[in-house]
Each structure stands twice: as structure tokens, then as C-alpha cells.
């Protein structure tokens, strides 16, 4: 055990990745374009809205050189409608639709700018929302309401994740579509542990099932691609 860290990303690491999301700022001061490793930033001319990386926007916000325009989903009406949806269905609310012809993934999708879809939670919703509430609560309409809704959403979704382990067995799986980065880093250890434990306990049953299948294949009954796929799923 060389590394004391658990597998996967820790919360600070997830938050660090989230800081590469683009957000929309309203500058208060002029600033020439900066040549950064991730590409040049557009020059800032107040009061024109400009997309900037989240980390730079946070820096400028702390120095009172810019205001951050919160993404449309971080508003009480959007959050409460998503919360209603979460309470109604057993699955997670769907992630925002991908723009057509894209090959990128978060944090390179424009999911936190002012023109993001208002009715879906993007991949980095939890960490982005929390950081915005901490650093720029004066730019967010009704911050206390937003904070309460965020906490409710988080609790509803964590409860769903925990309840998901009850359907796990054999080849069945939990549907984790739409789960955010921070939620993955929080739930990974537990869900991974449960899956691993069930695999250990069910090992003998799995082995006899495979033997039976191999026999059936030899006798020319059953067998085929379907079982192969299932086995692949169990190994991961």
C-alpha cells in the first residue's frame, strides 16, 4: 500500500477538475486577454459578458474585479422543479443533453455558462454550486433558498444511490446515469465495496453457473454472445 489515498478522486481533486468549467462573468474592470496554457482568454470589457474558466472567475470575484453570472439551473425555480422530478422517479434526473457533434466531456462542455440548459443538473453541479454559493453568494438570487434546495437534492440523490445496492445481484446493475462527479467520489468506496463483497459471497454460485453453461455449450444447447457480455460486466 504505497498510496494512503483511496481509489478514485478525492473531493478536493474533483473540485479542482470542476474549476476548469467555463462560467460567464460580467467584468467590472478592463483586462487584456491572457495567454494561458489552456488557450487565450478573451479580453474583458465591462459590462460585456465573457466566458472565463471558473478558477479565474473565482480569483477575479475575490478581488472584486468581476461578477459571476450563475448558470440558469442554479436558481430556485429550476432546482425545485428538478427536486420534484427526483422525488417522483426512482432513477436520477437526466443529465443535460449533449450538444450535437461533440466529442468532449465535462469539464469542457458549456454546462455552467449563462446559456446552459436550465432544466438539468450537469456533471459538476454539486461542487460548482457549492463553490459559487461560498464565493459569490451575492451574485446568486435568493442564495439561502438555493442552498436549501441544493442540500435537499443532494440528500435525495444520496439516498437513491444507497437504496440502489438492494437491487444488485448477479448480472443486474444500478443505473447511475446522471450522477455527478462529487457524488461519484462520495459513493464510490461504498458501492464498490458492496459489489466486491457480493462477488466474493456469490463466487461459488457464479462458478457453478459457468460450469453449467460450459456444459450446455458443449452439448450444443444455449450458449452464445449474451452470456459473454454478462461475464464481461461482472469483471469490471
Amino acid at each position: 500500500m504505497a498510496l494512503p489515498l483511496p481509489p478514485g478522486l478525492t473531493p478536493p481533486e474533483t473540485a479542482f477538475l470542476c474549476e476548469m468549467e467555463m462560467v460567464t462573468v460580467i467584468p467590472r474592470q478592463r483586462l487584456e486577454g491572457l495567454n494561458l496554457l489552456g488557450g487565450p482568454t478573451p479580453p474583458l470589457h465591462p459590462p460585456h459578458r465573457t466566458p472565463l474558466p471558473f478558477w479565474l472567475a473565482l480569483l477575479l470575484k475575490r478581488q472584486r474585479r468581476a461578477n459571476i453570472l450563475p448558470p440558469p439551473w442554479l436558481s430556485p425555480p429550476s432546482l425545485s422543479s428538478i427536486l420534484d422530478l427526483e422525488k417522483k422517479t426512482p432513477s436520477f434526473s437526466p443529465p443535460p443533453p449533449l450538444p450535437a457533434h461533440t466529442t468532449t466531456s465535462p469539464p469542457f462542455l458549456p454546462s455552467a455558462t449563462a446559456d446552459a440548459p436550465p432544466d438539468a443538473l450537469p456533471y459538476h453541479w454539486l461542487e460548482l454550486g457549492e463553490m459559487l454559493l461560498e464565493a459569490a453568494s451575492d451574485d446568486i438570487p435568493e442564495p439561502d433558498n438555493v442552498r436549501r434546495l441544493m442540500r435537499d437534492l443532494r440528500e435525495v440523490r444520496m439516498a437513491k444511490m444507497r437504496a440502489g445496492v438492494n437491487v444488485l445481484e448477479g448480472g443486474r446493475e444500478v443505473n447511475l446515469n446522471g450522477v455527478g462527479g462529487m457524488e461519484v467520489s462520495e459513493g464510490r468506496a461504498f458501492i464498490g465495496g458492496v459489489v466486491d463483497g457480493l462477488r466474493k459471497i456469490g463466487a461459488s454460485k457464479e462458478m457453478s453457473r459457468r460450469e453449467r453453461e460450459a456444459e450446455e455449450r458443449e452439448n450444443g444447447i444455449g450458449g452464445g454472445d449474451e452470456e459473454e457480455d454478462e461475464d464481461d460486466g461482472m469483471d469490471t
Binding site: 473540485a15 462529487m182 468506496a189
Partner: peptide, 17 residues
Amino acid sequence: AAHDSSKAMRLWMGEMK
């Protein structure tokens, strides 16, 4: 494992504040 990850989460939230 579950306790550690929820503790790490709380720690991050506290540090950010």
C-alpha cells in the same frame, strides 16, 4: 470506506468555507 468518504466530503465543504 463509507465513513471515510463521507468524512472527506464534509472536510472539503468545511475547508471551502
